[in-house]
């Protein structure tokens, strides 16, 4: 058992990061995919995560939203989400606490995961009505505003099966935003899309970066896009952050050899 007393019950101070990974380790059985990760993300910061497959980059997002960790603590907005307080110490969170703690986080998936039996609008209203307890009317208004924002208001009454991949992903972004998250996670949201519709999704994300004070964490294969909009880029390799920094620095003047190899391999593939 890990000694939990080294982790504070809450993060306090003037400059508390929005998301904070403290010494986090994640393993699937005997396979360790992330080891002793320390990563802080400021409020309003856009952080891109890049790296070869198997480097643990998607796991960074999944730990925040979907999975349990073996070691360390993750804080969101100063409060632990993976653990809860009990008798003055931290214990692993139960399901109920976990669900509540994750409410301020929204997530978009590679394969959209829209609910196929609901229209675009119903998809967006589901969280606000069922989880936040909003009235249907208020949820509808909010959802329509968001569908407008992502340019999908015309298709609000369509089921996902009638939408293209790019359209589905835009609805999925609106669905996540409808929960008014403080943190947005984008997990390879353009990887399953046809090349000609990638732009409509990246444009929506750009708009979010420009107009909203959202904290965002994005896993992507699109280096150009990451360079354009990120405040910071983290290069993952072998379950660790190999190198991180502002996009210009990391893409144009990478310091580590593995980063250089990875970037030149990606470039020659383009």
């Amino acid at each position: 058992m890990e000694d939990m007393s080294r982790y504070p019950l809450q993060l306090e101070g003037a400059d508390v990061p929005m998301v904070s990974f403290k010494n986090v380790t994640k393993a699937y059985g005997s396979l360790t995919v992330l080891e002793n990760l320390d990563l802080d993300i400021r409020e309003g910061e856009m952080v891109s995560v890049i790296g070869p497959s198997g480097s643990g980059k998607t796991t960074v997002l999944r730990m925040l939203m979907l999975e349990r960790i073996q070691q360390g603590v993750i804080y969101v907005n100063g409060k632990p989400i993976t653990h809860m307080e009990k008798n003055g110490g931290l214990v692993p969170a139960d399901d109920k606490y976990l669900r509540k703690a994750r409410e301020p986080i929204g997530m978009c998936f590679q394969h959209f995961n829209l609910f196929p039996h609901m229209t675009a609008l119903q998809n967006c209203m589901e969280g606000p009505v069922q989880v936040l307890g909003m009235s249907k009317r208020a949820a509808r208004e909010r959802s329509e505003d968001l569908l407008e924002l992502v340019g999908m208001i015309d298709k609000k009454d369509q089921h996902p099966s009638r939408l293209s991949g790019g359209q589905q992903q835009r609805v999925a972004i609106a669905r996540a935003l409808a929960m008014r998250p403080k943190v947005m996670l984008f997990d390879e949201v353009t990887s399953a899309l046809d090349p000609e519709v990638i732009g409509e999704v990246t444009n929506v994300i750009k708009k979010l970066v420009a107009e909203h004070n959202l904290t965002m964490l994005m896993v992507t294969h699109q280096m150009g896009f990451a360079k354009d909009i990120s405040d910071r880029v983290c290069f993952f390799f072998g379950g660790k952050i190999e190198e991180q920094g502002p996009p210009e620095q990391l893409f144009d003047h990478p310091q580590k050899e593995r980063t250089q190899q990875f970037l030149s391999a990606v470039k020659s593939a383009d």
Partner: peptide
């Protein structure tokens, strides 16, 4: 996963 992401019970 989408349900977890929306914190649905």
């Amino acid at each position: 996963e989408a349900c977890s992401a929306l914190s649905l019970s």
